[in-house]
Design a protein around this nucleic acid. Structure first.
Lengths: 114, 114
DNA sequence: AGAGCACATCGACGCACGTCGATGTCTGAA
DNA sequence: TTCAGACATCGACGTGCGTCGATGTGCTCT
């Protein structure tokens, strides 16, 4: 750590997240990085039975039905929500372990230094 | 649960995430919902001492120095990274408890049904 | 068969985001 | 004082995202 242009600090030892792993996890976080989708997941998880139908979710927001349907599709495509059609209604449920996987991410791959 | 247009399922009992809480947490996730920023946080956390200078972070990516500086600013503005200027170099460190707060989010406010 | 409802899809709009090259600011050394 | 290096900021470009109204699809009941 003397002249500029040379190694100025530590060579980044320790195992960090790989680029491939980062590009695999980022879409999951991106799907959750929206106030509406965050509330949607929370509402579904807090519902009785861990599932909720779109009609009820629609009433919880001041948004168009098309917008809610779009957000639900994003969450479903990301693998966070399970879709179950029963007659006229469609029920969404939080995919078991999906959120836990995200939570583990911060406990294992990122937080732990060594 | 008979005629369409009436209450078709459960009235969303249980405590879900409030709209204000969602809009407060979403920016945190949005800051992390990028492969480059995810790797940046991971690299910094995995570095010796839990901190890393920008010059080393720059070499880990095939991106312009301006782009890396931009991503670091986003993470710092979101409250995830601490900035410490020492002479010519700038060291970034993961803000203590910042990632843990995000991890707790999925364990308390969202995951737990009842 | 027809009507009505629940939900998905489509096309379009405005805005925010990721990236870049160029330039500015500050520090330490000659 | 001058110069070179480290990092931030600026302006611009293309792309993606959130939202909407309109329309399509599938189901149920009459």
């Amino acid at each position: 750590m003397s002249e500029p242009g040379l190694a100025c600090c530590t060579p980044l030892t320790g195992t960090a997240m790989s680029p491939g792993q980062a590009e695999q996890v980022a879409p999951l976080l991106k799907a959750l990085a929206d106030p509406v989708r965050l509330r949607l997941v929370s509402l579904i998880a807090a519902s009785a039975g861990g599932e909720a139908c779109v009609c009820d979710l629609n009433d919880a927001f001041d948004l168009t039905q098309a917008t809610i349907s779009h957000h639900l599709k994003v969450l479903h495509t990301a693998g966070l929500l399970d879709r179950d059609k029963r007659g006229v209604w469609v029920y969404y449920a939080v995919r078991p372990g999906a959120l836990a996987a995200v939570a583990n991410l911060f406990d294992t791959a990122v937080l732990t230094p060594a």
